[in-house]
Amino acid sequence: MMDKECAAIERLRVGAEMSETYYEQPLIITTSGGKDSDVCLHLAQAAGINYEVQHNHTTADAPETVRHVRETFRKLEEKEIKCTINWPTYKGQPVTMWSLIPQKLMPPTRVVRYCCDVLKEQGGKNRMICTGVRWAESTARKNNRAAFERLHRDREKRMLLSDNDDKRRLFENCQLKAKRVVNPIIDWTDEDVWAYIESEHIQMNPLYCEGQHRVGCIGCPVAGRKGRELEFARWPTYKGAYIRAFDRMIEGRKARGLETEWQTGTDAFDWWMGYDVLPGQMDFDEVMNDG
């Protein structure tokens, strides 16, 4: 564990140096209010680097998560660390999960996760950022993420690097204005994360103490049906917000002459949860050109 901690701290120091050199601004530590973000914040302190902190307010996080982020920011600001909350926008206008769904004319799904793009990933544009992404979280991240990354919508222009990659100089000197990322705990397992939290006495989001394994947007399809059912039982107002958003989504589809077998937002919610999948329900391609 000591070797992984040292490697993570070194990655943060390299990332901070890159940020100051290329952008002439501090490294941004992004925080979602989850355990991996809190570990990265603690490691940044241990690294002794200059950094600032940003949180992308998704509008669909649990109240406990919102309060945890606010308390974390309060403590950081006492240390004179700049903290920023990024409020989401879409097409130049303020947006929430509940106003985004009617504009997209379809529910967010495991395959079409437009909500992440709009609500979670817009902060830190054209900057060097730090995230808590880890290979252990999914096969996709194991295959497509690295310790250092240069992100770009054009996959041909993306660049992934390991700690000692011989493409490092190209990565550092490339003049393409794009978001660069350092993932200091990319190779940490869940056990590594919890062991570090315990050894360093890091104050965590209280939802973990209640047995939650993840803290993200309430209703996220990635959480699976059982996890989402537990979330909606705990926070029923969010279920109502989704149903009302789906009602407006259906109205929008009908106004555009798009077919839908859903008659109400509840019908759409049941389909979304996997309770009542209607055959031929939607052709996602017909609405993706909307945004």
Rank of each mutant, 00 (worst) to 15 (best):
M2H: 14
D3I: 04
R13D: 08
E20C: 05
E20S: 09
E20W: 12
L27I: 09
I28V: 15
G33E: 08
G34D: 04
K35D: 07
D36V: 01
L43S: 03
N50K: 14
V53R: 01
Q54E: 14
A60P: 08
R67E: 15
H68G: 02
R74M: 12
R74A: 11
K75L: 14
E78Q: 15
K82W: 09
T84H: 13
T84Y: 13
W98N: 02
S99A: 10
S99H: 08
P102F: 08
P102E: 08
P108D: 07
C115D: 13
V118D: 06
K120W: 10
Q122C: 04
G123K: 07
K125E: 14
T131P: 08
G132A: 10
A136P: 06
A136K: 06
T139D: 15
T139K: 14
R141E: 09
R145K: 13
R145E: 12
D154L: 05
N164S: 13
D165Q: 08
D165V: 05
D165I: 04
R169V: 11
E172S: 08
E172W: 14
N173K: 14
N173L: 15
K177C: 08
T189V: 05
W194E: 01
I197F: 02
S199M: 10
N205C: 13
L207E: 04
Y208M: 07
C209A: 14
G211D: 09
G211S: 09
H213S: 12
P221C: 01
K226D: 15
E231D: 14
E231P: 03
A233H: 11
T237N: 10
A241E: 13
A241F: 00
I250H: 01
E251P: 05
E259D: 12
W262H: 08
A268G: 05
F269Q: 03
W272H: 06
M273Y: 06
Y275S: 04
D276R: 11
V277S: 01
V277M: 02
P279A: 06
F284I: 09
F284R: 02
D285R: 10
D285K: 11
V287Y: 05
